[in-house]
Design a protein around this nucleic acid. Sequence first.
RNA 1: UCCCCGGUAGCUCAACUGGCAGAGCGGCUGGCUGUUAACCAGUAGGCUGGAGGUUCGAGUCCUCCCCGGGGAGCCA
Length: 432
Amino acid sequence: MMEHVYVESLASHVGQEVHLKGWVAGKRSSGKVRFLLLRDGTGMVQCVVTPGADSASFSLAEELPLEASVEVWGTVREDARAPGGHELSLTRVQPVHIPSEDFPIALKEHGVGFLMEHRHLWIRMRRQVPILRLRDGILWASRQFFKERGFVATESPILVGTSVEGTTTLFTLDYFGRPAYLSQSGQLYLEATCAALGKVYWIGPTFRAEKSKTRRHLTEFWMLEAEVAFLEHEGNLVLQEDLVRYIVEYAASEHAADLEALERDPRVLLDQVSEPFARVTYAEAVQLVREAGVEMEEGDDLGAPAEDAISKHFGRPVFVERFPAQIKPFYMKRAPDNPHQALCADLIGPEGYGELIGGSQRVDSEEELERQLREAGLPLEPYKWYVDLRKWGSVPHSGFGLGVERTVAWICGLAHLREAIPFPRMLDRIDP
RNA sequence: UCCCCGGUAGCUCAACUGGCAGAGCGGCUGGCUGUUAACCAGUAGGCUGGAGGUUCGAGUCCUCCCCGGGGAGCCA
């Protein structure tokens, strides 16, 4: 029995007979020469069927509809005419399952609404597969980065009893008769965990019930969060920069074929991270935004047009540091030289991909934390455990959260976050 | 929550100032020994999102509703 191989390994099987399993991704015919495009998750290969194959296989090559699942046998050949450089001279094809209805998604343009209705099938198509493979690569690179640096992968709960940032909208649910929420960030818990393990990170889903309807928002999205004891603001920025550069370099070298399939030039990405990331203070950013002709009040948060202006100005990732403490959450430490500024930074991605990372040094004194909770109008009681962290061996510590889908969208060059996750959840869209 | 755009064949879209409902793709039938979202010929396919209204006449104009898309605010 011939061994089953995957399309990605065909280059090492030239001249050999192989057995492939997959799906019909396309077919063409020119009378007595028929072409079957086979995909198996690792790649696509064109199978050539001539009357030399057995007669049942020859007619199947014409009859099999799109997305029929099949097993094929044939000889691997190098051929410049074939997409990918290799093709299979097919000797036999055996159906595994033949659909009785036409596959809803044709090899042509479709509207977004229609594609989203069929997301469970859309993810099989030629652009979607490389995106999802790159997403895996980006997450894998992140884990490798943290592993190399001695971080411990840990977890934060998804079901929580208190909100991280009182202002943001939460999904509420009934927890045995008590109100509970879906987590909008694992940060507070990571602060506790880092006092146990030193350097920690986690990658998990977070939820925002904001009624956002834009290409930059999902209601369920993944965050990569890290928290480090004894790390201060400056070191936090260096860590973030190292991580982002590591991810980009990994994607460019290990996923060159996926990037090419998306027509995303790896050199553009590598250029963007080759120099040290730009840094500006909030005050400088406001200046810059106004000079770009975007209206903005001193003291306002950066809106989407403002972020775009900053992004455009630098053409590479840029840290915006020291926001007014007033517009930032209660847990951020104030700058020692200016109590009105938070020791924080947002990392704004290039090409208008918006805020990729939000990070800060955290408040480490009990008195200060309680004061900032009060100033934010939050009740002390639910945060008692969080305040406790400052009672026993409090240390300076910092961390950040990276938006996974925004990073995937940037690296893949996507126009919309919905393609950066297998099953996006958005306002008005929870199926499939 | 607010602002803008849209809903016509399975899909993507046309249809002038209100005047016979159209094309491409996909499907089906046939042709072609190197196709690249193949090509060529033929063929089937419609409650124009829903409800009301104006009009001799509405896909087209008006009102309300439903659904989808884009953006703002907020954020990652």
